Amino acid sequence: MKALIVVDYTFDFVADEGKLTCGAPGQSIESRLTSITKQFIENNDLVVFAVDLHEEDDTYHPEMSLFPPHNIKGTKGREQYGMLGDYINSLPDEQKKLLYWMDKTRYSAFAGTNLDLKLRERSITEIHLVGVCSDICVLHTAIDAYNRGFSIVVHEDAVQSFNAAGHDWALQHFTSVLGAKVVNKSSH
């Protein structure tokens, strides 16, 4: 069994006016990321939306000294970006029930969440990763998935970062260190 994890494809991380945006690189994967999400939903596979969550004035969170405030609870910044958000909002309620929304407060979608439990209770052994940033939250989610024994597929044409060198390094790291399968549309 497989599941798709859409990591942080939100307004704050992708839109030009987002608080911690990838900008054009993040926007360049919009169509492909949305297409992959549609495929998983149409196949009745589990789709997880792992969405970064921060409190307005949380001075104790380690990211607060590294990045500007982003994905603040109750703001537009946490909404799914562009075509993906439009697609999800257009789904009938019975299809929306197949989606699993989860807040995450650390880079990895596994850190401090029940994601591992949700995947295992559905007998999922293979996770597919899309979203941003390939060298931060996608990478840390992949590392935790590897350490938990999941097979990992990273969709190269549906991950991106604001750091081109970090993105390239992460793509190499996925295969050479985590044993992940890195695929793109032409490799299907």
Rank of each mutant, 00 (worst) to 15 (best):
P25C: 09
W169A: 11
T59G: 03
I124T: 10
H128D: 04
N114W: 02
A145D: 00
E30I: 07
N147A: 10
V6H: 01
N71T: 10
Q160C: 14
G18E: 06
A164K: 08
K76F: 04
A50T: 02
K2M: 15
G179K: 04
I36G: 06
A170N: 06
G23M: 05
S187W: 07
D8S: 12
Q39N: 10
V47R: 12
E42N: 14
A24G: 05
I143E: 04
T175I: 08
L178I: 11
V153R: 10
A24F: 08
T21D: 05
F13T: 13
D157N: 09
I72E: 02
D116K: 10
F11S: 00
H54G: 00
A158D: 06
K181T: 13
W101H: 14
N184I: 00
I143Y: 00
Y9V: 02
F13S: 14
V51T: 14
P25I: 12
L119N: 04
L33I: 08
S123F: 07
A15T: 10
F162I: 06
K38Q: 14
E156C: 03
F150I: 09
A24S: 12
N44M: 04
P69Y: 02
Y81T: 06
G149F: 10
K118F: 11
E94F: 11
L171P: 04
F49S: 00
L46C: 11
V159K: 05
A180H: 06
F162D: 09
W101L: 11
L4Q: 03
L99M: 10
A24C: 04
V138M: 13
E156K: 15
K19L: 08
T141A: 10
E79S: 15
K96L: 05
T125V: 07
G179A: 03
A15S: 12
Q95T: 11
